[in-house]
Design a protein around this nucleic acid. Sequence first.
DNA 1: GGTCATATTCTCAAAAATTGAGAATATGGA
DNA 2: TCCATATTCTCAATTTTTGAGAATATGACC
Lengths: 246, 246
Amino acid sequence: MAGLARYMAVLRLFSEGMPTWTVAEMADALQVPQSTAYRTVRDLLGEGLVEMSSEARYRLGPAFVEFDRLTRLTDPLMQAGAHVLRAIVQDAGVPAVALLCRLYGREVMCIADHVSPDASFSPSYERGKPMPLTQGATSKAILARLPAKRLSKLIGADAVETLRPELAVIRRAGFCLGRGEIDEGLAGMAVPIVCEAEGLVASLSLVVESHRLSGAREERLRHVVMNAAHEIEATLNQDHVGALRA
Amino acid sequence: MAGLARYMAVLRLFSEGMPTWTVAEMADALQVPQSTAYRTVRDLLGEGLVEMSSEARYRLGPAFVEFDRLTRLTDPLMQAGAHVLRAIVQDAGVPAVALLCRLYGREVMCIADHVSPDASFSPSYERGKPMPLTQGATSKAILARLPAKRLSKLIGADAVETLRPELAVIRRAGFCLGRGEIDEGLAGMAVPIVCEAEGLVASLSLVVESHRLSGAREERLRHVVMNAAHEIEATLNQDHVGALRA
DNA sequence: GGTCATATTCTCAAAAATTGAGAATATGGA
DNA sequence: TCCATATTCTCAATTTTTGAGAATATGACC
């Protein structure tokens, strides 16, 4: 294994189930001699990607927290949309979770969330959690606005065929409603957000308990989410124009 | 430049002031030929450390958001202390910001914050922001609990001499009050948190407007912060014992 | 302060990866 | 379709990485 991959292989060992590793364990898991593992860890340590816990164990380091902050500060979607989440949760009038998600590299990832204080259900998503590409209103709203070429590169031509009719409907409606696709008993409403100039394809979603979503309320919430999403989209395009002029 | 350093040099180019870069700009900034820069970016792209924005520009990628989440989920200090921040801000009874910070690699970094809804001042700190090592109550509370050897490795023997008396007082009091050391007009109260078994040296701080901190209120807030910090410390040691048994 | 076990760094020649310059291709608009 | 620019590729020279084990540091315990 060469170059960056060697380092990333070590970093990807760390998980929720096993947050600290000894060098011997790493060497064993990656099938490399200990001397090599030690050298790799020494480099990672020097860059702050790993830190030492006690007893010869290592943990992920401060660099990630720092780079994440930079991402939060500089992601245009984050800047345009973060404050909207609180607002739509409040507008919802029922226990709700608002999510801002985007196609990020090869995954759909949640990059911001807001849970209403009275929400008794636990949200399945949170900042930094990748989501299934082809399941749930959030992802579908994103896929619906992806150019055909990029879409098939992402999920494969077969999957595109299967989803095509559904995505066409979403694209036309500018809206997607999913019930229980991700979490049993929950419903998600998602609206796409696109900013070509920034290379962004994203969605704003509101998750509520399925049984609360009937008739007039569904109608009202749809408007809340759509208006908020369009506002974010407008801000994005506005900002970009501003950035170009500056 | 070799190995990891070559990749990190590229990543550290990204900043709040310049969040996207073209490959030509990177090559120029790092004084390497473009072909090399392209190869480096290709590797970073493959690992999700960088993503493409539009028009041949690159941005930091999803990997950082993902690793940050893992850090949030697995950092023992975070688990033990995150929920306490909201509580002490509420207890404070005046506009306040609560911070959980720790020695992380070679820096003191804020890893969690909570701002009271009525705070009119903007906090100078937030998750992911490194703080000056030798200034402010937050950092001093941490330094005060660092073993002598580690302390001088961190800030140098000279700085240790200068700070020694002050740190001795903090260590004995289990508490540190600083006025205007970081932000003019604000006061910080910090209490150290240590968990040897996890290799953690940290502090819990409460920041309020300086003029609100007089007499009885100072006394009361000191107790609020100290109690909360000790509770976190107890949880940490408890959890660690539990982890060992499991 | 000394002794042990274990963690970490070091050494060196062989093997593998990276480098730089420029040619060759891909890509995305007019 | 063509153009400009972005990106990948090629190849020999150079530099880095590798693996095994020896050498050294570290820290707990007596």
